[in-house]
Design a protein around this nucleic acid. Structure first.
Lengths: 165, 165
DNA sequence: TGCCGTCCCATGCTATCCCAAGAATGCCCA
DNA sequence: TGGGCATTCTTGGGATAGCATGGGACGGCA
């Protein structure tokens, strides 16, 4: 599965095309469908989410889980798979941002790609800045630190040791 | 089996014809009966459900399972198989929406196809919007996020490890 | 014989492909 | 250590093919 890191801001031309950051493309090259990315509107932000085929396969599988209640499944089917748009890149590594998605995220002239490991997001650059500012405030308020999180997670993993990778 | 994604809104002409979205057609092309789709009224919504031949075969088979109680089987047979209408597409990839189904879903001028992976739904566009708005409210209220669901599902899968994949 | 459904043909629009060039980066050589 | 060269990336525009949509004609059923 591809890994997406860093933030890149690229221009959207009047046909609605954007270059996928070269780093993302290199990552996508290792996946089962290198020239296809899947886009959908974020459940929680005015932004787009993106992932590769392999991630979607995992997600699709997790929907088969009997632990998931019917309402949640219905929501995911409607809001993720119902909104999911497979987008294939051209020879230059560009994709066309579907109109309804661009509108949803308020993207017009520029698009900010932000890597989130297994997925990435696409934001309107100013909206991203605002979002980051708000998040940073929370970090300060809640006094979150990285070392703390790592410590907490490894404590939890020790309790569940032997669980899948 | 075909996979249906995304949402497409197409016009219904005065003969009752609608184009099946090209993406859906491409998906259907790989199935055992590419030019036939099966439609039936949704059990839970004022909308239509659709699927390909292969999906119906699987559904039919699962009705043979002894685990299914008689009431459930009876319901499925009455409301799904009893209402099922096979619809074949013309050379342009259009189908004629059966009158009683169009009426059931309130479809007159436009039809919204919404992919749900193995099946799809057909809605009257405004009704779909209302439905989505209601669902989105639930997403906010329950504070649902995608990564959460994936995590939950994989935890569940780990707990059931050894079960057939 | 009249009506309804199916098939065939025509058209505007949209999206996809192809070709091209400027800019930035990194590398090599002097 | 500095400058020049080459490669890669991003961005732009035109041509082409596919798709959604509309109307008319033919055949079958009532």
């Amino acid at each position: 599965m591809a890994v997406f890191l860093s933030t890149y801001v690229n221009k959207v031309d009047r046909k609605g095309r954007v270059s996928i950051p070269a780093q993302f493309r290199q990552s996508l090259a290792k996946t089962s469908a290198p020239s296809t990315v899947y886009l959908w509107p974020s459940l929680n932000h005015q932004a787009l989410e993106g992932a590769d085929q392999d991630y979607l396969d995992v997600l699709s599988e997790s929907l088969e889980s009997p632990d998931l209640d019917a309402d949640e499944r219905d929501m995911i089917e409607t809001f993720i798979f119902g909104k999911l748009i497979p987008v294939s890149s051209d020879a230059e590594g560009r994709i066309v941002l579907p109109k309804e998605l661009a509108e949803f995220a308020g993207i017009t002239e520029e698009a900010a790609f932000i890597g989130r490991r297994k997925t990435f997001q696409i934001w309107e650059p100013d909206a991203l800045k605002a979002h980051e500012a708000a998040l940073r405030e929370q970090v300060v308020r809640k006094d979150i630190s990285l070392s703390q999180i790592v410590a907490k997670a490894s404590r939890g993993a020790a309790g569940r040791s032997g669980e899948g990778a």
